[in-house]
């Protein structure tokens, strides 16, 4: 029996082109969980241990675009804070989450428009010194001086790992 194709106007296929496609939602959920797991991985560094919580957000941004990266950064940070009972209090974590999503977007923007490693430098600068300056209204100069070096080192490690992973994974046809 011949196969009668259904008329094209009756085909109801949405090829997942919208931003909130199920594929993207699923990927974001998993990467947010990963950020939380990364926060529990402690890499030894000269200034104490560094958590790999931001690496996945930077990876998401460079691989899947700034919007996805920004959401992973913000929600990933909030989820990590939630699972540890908001150690720095809810508003401060919200504040950091918003910052992170801006830094991650800036990283993607510079990395794509100018150069990958320039983007990395900008991101380290934003996530290190600038982030610590931005806590001034809450904790005064004291907190800023206490944070500036550890934050910069943590940012460099996270961004370096994200970029390395991106370079290796993007060579395969996976993403």
């Amino acid at each position: 029996m011949a196969i009668v194709p259904i008329p094209p106007e009756e085909i109801n296929i949405d090829y997942q082109k919208i931003f909130w496609s199920s594929k993207r939602i699923a990927r974001m959920a998993i990467f947010i969980a990963l950020s939380s797991v990364g926060a529990m991985i402690k890499v030894p560094s000269p200034t104490g241990t560094v958590a790999l919580d931001a690496a996945f957000a930077f990876f998401s941004a460079i691989t899947f675009g700034w919007r996805e990266g920004a959401i992973v950064a913000a929600l990933g940070h909030m989820l990590t804070a939630l699972t540890t009972g908001f150690p720095l209090s809810f508003p401060i974590h919200l504040y950091i989450a918003v910052q992170m999503s801006v830094w991650v977007s800036a990283f993607e923007f510079v990395a794509k428009k100018i150069h990958l490693w320039v983007g990395a430098l900008v991101a380290v600068f934003l996530n290190g010194p600038v982030s610590s300056l931005l806590v001034m209204p809450i904790g005064g100069v004291g907190l800023t001086t206490a944070l500036i070096i550890p934050l910069t080192i943590a940012a460099s490690i996270n961004i370096f790992i994200a970029i390395t992973a991106y370079l290796i994974i993007s060579k395969s046809k996976m993403v």
Partner: peptide
């Protein structure tokens, strides 16, 4: 909300 709930659900899996 869905992403957060699913994220929480997947923390032990990813761990």
């Amino acid at each position: 909300a869905f992403i957060i709930a699913t994220g929480i659900r997947f923390i032990p899996t990813m761990q």
